[in-house]
Amino acid sequence: MRVSVVRQAKHFGELAYIRGLVTYKLSPFEQKAFAGFIKSIPKTIYRIGSNLLTIAPPFAIGYFIFTETEKKFHQMCRKNPEDYVNDK
């Protein structure tokens, strides 16, 4: 089996020829970068709203636990004034 220099110099995606495989390429200048962008905004809002009741409660509970734990930690770090009443 002979491998020619031209075959070795091709790009990675062009090394093998597969029968029955059809590929299409579109120029970057022909693509629309923001096609359907305005249409996707209401869909995004709907998807966020439909999942809000499943996602928000765990985050709210986690936030509540975090803030209460931080308050308790800072309260326990303070000195108790009653321990120093008789000190001079």
Rank of each mutant, 00 (worst) to 15 (best):
34 F>R: 02
14 E>Q: 06
60 A>W: 00
77 C>T: 08
73 F>I: 13
18 I>Q: 04
34 F>C: 10
53 L>H: 10
23 T>C: 08
70 E>F: 15
65 I>K: 00
53 L>D: 11
16 A>L: 09
27 S>A: 12
37 F>Y: 11
12 F>T: 12
26 L>R: 12
34 F>P: 01
32 K>N: 12
3 V>W: 02
10 K>Y: 09
86 N>W: 01
31 Q>H: 02
79 K>A: 10
77 C>F: 06
36 G>N: 02
38 I>E: 15
52 L>H: 09
4 S>A: 07
75 Q>G: 08
45 I>Y: 01
23 T>M: 04
14 E>I: 01
15 L>I: 07
4 S>E: 09
6 V>T: 13
31 Q>T: 11
14 E>C: 09
15 L>T: 08
70 E>H: 14
4 S>D: 07
54 T>H: 12
10 K>H: 08
57 P>A: 04
20 G>I: 01
66 F>P: 00
83 D>W: 14
61 I>P: 00
22 V>H: 11
74 H>N: 13
51 N>A: 15
40 S>T: 07
32 K>E: 14
15 L>N: 05
20 G>R: 00
9 A>N: 13
47 R>A: 11
38 I>V: 15
73 F>V: 14
32 K>S: 14
73 F>A: 15
11 H>N: 12
84 Y>W: 03
15 L>A: 07
54 T>S: 14
56 A>N: 00
48 I>N: 06
4 S>C: 08
9 A>L: 14
21 L>V: 14
88 K>P: 11
84 Y>G: 02
65 I>L: 07
37 F>H: 06
41 I>V: 10
67 T>P: 00
18 I>S: 03
53 L>K: 10
51 N>E: 13
78 R>M: 06
4 S>T: 14
73 F>K: 12
51 N>P: 06
62 G>Q: 00
76 M>V: 04
4 S>R: 02
13 G>E: 11
27 S>Y: 11
24 Y>D: 10
10 K>M: 14
69 T>H: 04
30 E>Y: 02
39 K>E: 15
27 S>N: 09
31 Q>F: 05
26 L>Q: 12
35 A>Y: 10
21 L>N: 03
24 Y>Q: 09
79 K>Q: 03
73 F>M: 12
9 A>H: 05
71 K>W: 05
70 E>M: 15
1 M>L: 10
80 N>S: 09
63 Y>Q: 03
36 G>P: 04
63 Y>R: 03
22 V>W: 06
6 V>D: 15
43 K>I: 10
48 I>W: 04
38 I>C: 09
28 P>D: 08
13 G>Q: 11
26 L>H: 10
23 T>H: 03
32 K>M: 12
37 F>K: 02
76 M>H: 04
5 V>M: 12
78 R>V: 01
57 P>E: 02
